[in-house]
Simulated scan of single mutants.
Amino acid sequence: MNPVRAFWLVLTLLVTSPAWAFQSRVVSIPSAAMHKSFDATVVLPDQYTSGKGAERYPVVYLLHGSGGDYTDWTANSPIGKLADRYHVILVMPDGGRESWYIDSPVDPRSRYETYVGTEVVAYIDEHFRTIAAKQARAITGLSMGGFGALHIALDRPDQFGAAGSISGAVDPRGCENEPGIEQVFGDPARDAGFWNSEAIVENARSLGDAHIALTIDCGVNDSLVQSNRTLHERLVELGVPHDYAERPGGHTWKYWANAVQYQVLFFAGAFRHAHVASNMASGMTGAAS
């Protein structure tokens, strides 16, 4: 390429490309429920450190899938730039490899619903400049994390104002062969009542009663798409407001890295609709960090 032309191409890219200046931190969050600490990734928007230091921000919690950990989202998706773009704090806690984000009735050592839904939220509000209110919190996740996000939001309607699921395992009864699932849910036959009660598809009415902004999506080539369609159809029948989308793709990071951008956009809209945004935290609690 002509050197002069190459110079102008580079200059154009520098001028037209946004400069993402978010910060990523790893913090250790203790769990009294499980008597140990777990790492979590926290992504702060550029404005958090470059501003006057008084602004508070909404928070989006992102849950990883089966076999994953707190590093998955930052390693496999452009999640960081969303913090800058929408002026939100992103929190990615560790949910264990096969916890399903529930307080297990068969394993008292596995209490990840309490950890993520209560202890992580309390820690983040204490150590970062958050808008510590339901209307300023959203939770979503992929696969097992999609189930976990909806499950936690259902059990804690006063904690989260918005929730989502990406390729969510919204009916764990179809995941009986998933390694490790029986260790937290129990035997599918003997403990069928518990499995049925935990299925998100059986709790569509409760999602309406929770009065949360709700978004669900799944790839058309995903093995979980039918259970997501069933949930969507039940929500429609019940008149529960929600966004639902199917896009080309399967149970892959290529799909999830794209889908999460739509979900954070949805949450940013929900925050605006609830009149929650950075610089609007007068009277809210939450510590500076």
Rank of each mutant, 00 (worst) to 15 (best):
V4F: 13
A6I: 07
F7V: 09
W8C: 01
L14W: 06
V15W: 07
T16H: 05
A21R: 13
Q23S: 15
Q23I: 14
V26I: 12
S28Y: 02
P30K: 12
A33F: 04
M34S: 08
M34T: 03
M34E: 12
F38S: 01
T41G: 04
T41R: 12
T41D: 09
V42Q: 03
S50E: 13
G51T: 08
G51I: 08
K52R: 09
K52T: 10
G53E: 12
E55V: 05
Y57P: 00
V59A: 02
L62N: 07
L63I: 06
S66T: 14
G67I: 04
G68W: 02
Y70Q: 10
D72H: 07
W73Q: 01
T74G: 05
A75R: 09
I79N: 02
I79G: 02
G80A: 11
G80H: 03
K81T: 09
L82N: 00
D84V: 06
R85L: 11
I89C: 04
I89M: 12
L90D: 05
M92F: 12
D94F: 13
G95T: 09
G95W: 03
R97K: 14
E98K: 05
S99D: 04
W100N: 01
P105R: 06
D107K: 08
R111C: 07
Y115H: 06
G117V: 03
G117Y: 00
T118P: 01
E119Y: 00
E119Q: 09
V120H: 04
Y123L: 04
Y123K: 01
I124Y: 02
I124Q: 00
I124K: 00
E126I: 00
H127A: 06
T130Q: 07
T130D: 08
I131W: 01
A133D: 11
Q135G: 04
Q135C: 03
I139R: 02
G141K: 02
S143V: 03
G146E: 03
L150I: 11
L150Y: 06
L150N: 04
I152K: 00
D155G: 15
P157Q: 08
Q159R: 13
G161M: 04
A162K: 04
A163K: 01
A169C: 09
D171N: 15
E178Q: 13
I181E: 07
I181M: 08
D187A: 06
G193C: 02
W195P: 03
E198Q: 15
A199N: 07
I200K: 02
S206M: 08
A210L: 06
A210F: 07
I212A: 15
A213D: 14
A213E: 12
L214V: 10
L214Q: 07
I216W: 03
I216T: 05
D217S: 15
C218N: 13
V220N: 13
N221P: 00
D222V: 09
D222I: 05
S223D: 14
S223P: 11
N228C: 14
N228M: 10
N228P: 06
T230E: 15
H232C: 12
L235T: 09
E237S: 14
V240E: 04
D243G: 09
Y244C: 08
E246T: 02
G249R: 07
H251Y: 15
Y255K: 08
N258M: 13
A259P: 05
Q261K: 12
Q261H: 14
Y262G: 14
Q263H: 14
L265M: 11
F266D: 08
F267H: 13
A268R: 07
A270C: 13
H273R: 11
V276H: 02
N279M: 12
G283F: 08
M284N: 08
G286A: 06
A287N: 10
A288Q: 11
S289D: 10
